[in-house]
Design a protein around this nucleic acid. Structure first.
Lengths: 213, 213
DNA sequence: TGGCATAGATTGTTCTACAACAACACCCGT
DNA sequence: ACGGGTGTTGTTGTAGAACAATCTATGCCA
């Protein structure tokens, strides 16, 4: 749970996630501090937090740059997701408050899909999976997922074909939610496992195409 | 993966884990900076990292203090462990390099048990579980476990009955390793689930006794 | 062309200063 | 004596300047 009050860190975090600084971009302390209207010291403290979250990479004496997830990173992220999400869904209760969030995310995904607003589709997608993890009622697992999801967003940023990336999963989210509510957690978990494998393949495919061409 | 080179953060981390600063202790910037021979700014950067790792708690304008895990924290830590460890063991290969680390940890635990060196028994115990997580080959899951294990150590520090806390699990570790090698991952995973429940009960029992008496 | 050395720029760290805030003690009126 | 408000004190939060340590790039020389 990040401190909502920690304005600078959160502001910087949001700007990075929103793609204001492309993955790999070097973040100069002096110029960025000036741009943000803070001192170098304060900015460096924010850097340390974001580096610990995996959003930026810090190389001693060479400064920080926006993380640029590799294929290995994507593979690991999906590996971690498969450890957490299906199990959370399998053990989750349909009466859990997070189910409401799941519903709302699916709804938002569908309306955004019609509007061809891929950015929002992607956001709704992530919110859906965040809600799944929330079923576990574990702050530490939620934190892990939050960091992982942020990294994944950086990977998405490098793939400029958001439609192919996000659109196919709107209907799958709806289906997954129905399975969960009608057939229970374990059945939904099994469906989610296949879902995640497909999602990983989609991302990796776009990724390798990108790196080559 | 923590930067091994980051001397200050790691030194402070080790000192906290080793119990040099009791859980709940307030860490004054000025006096600690003086004690460590670094400036306030440098120390504050290390604070941010350790806070992100959950080792210290940072309250705005009130400074940082060594984390003092609550019952809720312990419950959540074990919940997270149950999500990761059994699954890692179930899918782990007996040929994985981490199996060697598992063996060595069990051996170390047994010799330390004979020597009644409970501190080392506890360390070996944690190394054993760290090796189990390493079976998953996931940097992100390893990182999660590293942070979680450190927090758990802080909880252990508040319970000054290390024998009851660590001794019972040396033989269980040996048994778990044998099950894994002879009967395979899934069987070992099942055994580990019961193991973790017992371990959680042991810690929580000592914990509530402590808080009351 | 290749290697080396110097120069420039950036980060790492320290120091000083002051504003912002929290905890504590104190005083005052009831 | 007691509660509430107030000021005092200490700490943290932030800024800014300065310098050392290190990396990067340029240009020189063989």
């Amino acid at each position: 749970m990040p401190d909502v009050e920690d304005t600078l860190t959160n502001a910087l975090r949001r700007r990075i996630i929103d793609g204001e600084f492309a993955p790999g971009t070097r973040l100069s302390e002096i110029s960025l501090a000036e741009k943000l209207g803070v001192s170098r010291n304060t900015l460096r403290e924010a850097f340390r937090v974001l580096a610990e979250q995996g959003l930026i990479e810090h190389v001693p004496h060479r400064g920080v740059s926006v993380a640029s997830p590799t294929v290995a990173d994507v593979v690991d992220i999906y590996r971690a997701r498969r450890y957490v999400e299906p199990a959370a869904l399998a053990a989750g209760s349909p009466l859990h408050p997070a189910v409401t969030a799941m519903r709302e995310s699916v709804d938002l995904g569908e309306t955004s899909l019609e509007a061809r607003d891929w950015r929002t589709v992607g956001t709704a997608n992530m919110a859906f999976h965040d809600a799944i993890v929330a079923l576990a009622d574990s702050p530490r697992l939620e934190r892990l997922f939050r960091d992982i999801a942020a990294e994944l967003r950086l990977a998405f940023l490098e793939i400029d074909n958001p439609e192919a990336l996000h659109a196919p999963f709107v209907t799958r989210n709806r289906s997954l939610l129905e399975t969960f509510l009608e057939q229970g957690g374990p059945a939904a978990a099994e469906e989610l496992r296949g879902y995640l494998i497909l999602s990983e393949q989609t991302v990796l495919g776009a990724f390798t195409r990108l790196r080559r061409g």
